[in-house]
Amino acid sequence: MVTSDPFTTLGVDEHAGDEEIKRRYLALVRAFPPDRDPERFQRYRAAFEALSDERTRLEATLLQIHAAALSRLKQQLLASAKPFSARASKATVAALLSEGADQACSARGSTQERSAQT
């Protein structure tokens, strides 16, 4: 529900300085180069441009609703994750299988199948 904002996209604090923002941006671009994932790169680029200058950073902080603090809260909770420490619930697996069945049925209307039926 909370709008994605440049702070959350880059994963930086709203009080972060030029250096930190640039370092974070370069790290993300190295991890996800534009030739491998152009859309993701565009997102990072736009976020970096929105925060690269002190004034634009202030614009993002003052004139927009951002979710940086909420993201940090989530990050804190995520830090306690223990991979494969538990099993999924039966309801979750059932929901995933129903979702899959629904998607597979929706793909029924493909041109190929329809022409085959005709």
């Binding site: 989530k74 995520l78 306690s80 223990k82 999924a88 619930s89 979750t92 697996v93 995933l96 979702e99």
Partner: peptide
């Protein structure tokens, strides 16, 4: 699990997100 995954999970598939969180004890 990352913040990005959580953000995409909110928009796309709730059960997928729940599955990941359950497996990570979250």
């Amino acid at each position: 699990p990352s913040l990005e995954f959580l953000a995409s999970g909110i928009q796309s598939s709730g059960p997928q997100q729940a599955f990941v969180l359950q497996l990570h004890g979250l």
